[in-house]
Design a protein around this nucleic acid. Sequence first.
RNA 1: GGCGGGGUAGCAAAAUGGUUAUGCCGCGGCCUGCAAAGCCGUUUACGCCGGUUCGAUUCCGACCCCCGCCUCCA
Length: 463
Amino acid sequence: MITLYNTLAREKQEFKPITPGVVNMYVCGITVYDYCHIGHARMVTVFDMVSRWFRESGFQVNHVRNITDIDDKIIKRATENGEPIGALTERFVAAMNEDFDALGIIRPDHEPRATDHIDGMQSIISKLFDRGLAYSAPNGDVYYSVRKFQGYGKLSRKNLDDQRAGERVEIDTNKQDAADFVLWKHAKTDEPGEVKWASPWGAGRPGWHIECSAMACHHLGEHFDIHGGGEDLQFPHHENEIAQSEGAHGSQYVNYWLHNGFINVDNEKMSKSLGNFFIIRDVLAKYDAEVLRFFILRAHYRSPLNYSDVHLDDAKNALTRLYTTLKTVPAADVVIDWVEPHAARFKAAMNDDFATTEAVAVLFELALYANKHAASAEGAQAAGLLKALAKILGLLQRDPESYLQAGASNSEWTADKIEAAIIARKEARASKNWAESDRIRDELTAAGIVLEDTAQGTTWRRE
RNA sequence: GGCGGGGUAGCAAAAUGGUUAUGCCGCGGCCUGCAAAGCCGUUUACGCCGGUUCGAUUCCGACCCCCGCCUCCA
């Protein structure tokens, strides 16, 4: 039995699929106008982990993650760059895929793009008009009349009358109510033709929220199991999605809402204005992608996660321990026996709202056991189980030696040169010339290369 | 102002009414030519004040502090 924290209910609930054995899940993806940051990395890693666990648990998973390829920021950036919208978005879709692939994210089953679903959006807007929930404003925009939708605020638990409308942002006088949101934006004369679509309400382009209602409905139907995204999307985005989809279809939209916590820097939310913003590729230039994945998964998905080099160093050292174990103790081929105590605890943790923190702790306990029994079949079995369980989290699947020796490709110390130094040191040691052997080792240490003398000979790794 | 999340050892991060979380770092020991790795051990942990209880970090109440959403945002 899998339980998950449902934002809609504000409590953990047992997961009951609409169709037995099937999980239909929609996750809000990226707006492609810039490189993805580590907050995006957390979001996709978390829902990748969720998909993997459902699959491991025997479910058929339909994982949909959209790509927002039309919006104000995209238009602005394309204009600044003097390039077509399509060229800009294609470039950043490619960059996104590179980054996510590096993180070991399994591609979602569908990655719909907003611009391919304009018809679906218009269809929903028409239904909203039919039901009296949409109206055309004097300026040509189409708005959703929030107060006419009963249950508005049920996800974010916001009471319309308690909001301080207009306190931070000036109220658009075209709206009948400050809380109303745009469904369709009328075309502006200075906008390029590629952002204008014909519609019953005049040429224009969709509002932000409507795309997810349309794409989710297209791939998963009017009613599906899980909808995920970053916690900031809870309001207004997800609240508005509910209003649109349930308003248009007259039935429940989503059973379980999952929201991942943010990555913070110095305990504050990352934001460009604070200048504490980190894009994935900059981090990957400094740290192995698996370190970043491990860093994300060792925390619980709903907790805030502080980012800094110190924390990544910590994660890196911890991951090195695991890989070192697998290097030292050959992993046996293991079919997971879920009754085995470690495996059972791993499963119980994952079933409990994806408690990867506890699952990772089990990994370390297996490493300890494997190290203690390194020479025996028990040890190989434990190492094998460690690797098998880690696979579910998308971790520890590389050749340990390769992982430990990776990086520093720009170093003058190539593998060949290191091997040569090790041979020279071996000769010095054979003649008990400790001064020379230590000199060689110190030289390597200074270059960030650690030597380890074992019964089977000397091995090396990069720090 | 409304709504929500949180304060755990040097750092990071979980669970839990009484029993070792886990990892990193530091320190001591074993091992080693010396190291590294590994193993063993180790550093007054639970924001503050009351209450319930045989017993609370863990439940209840008050208080202090931090963070998020209420605007585009993962």
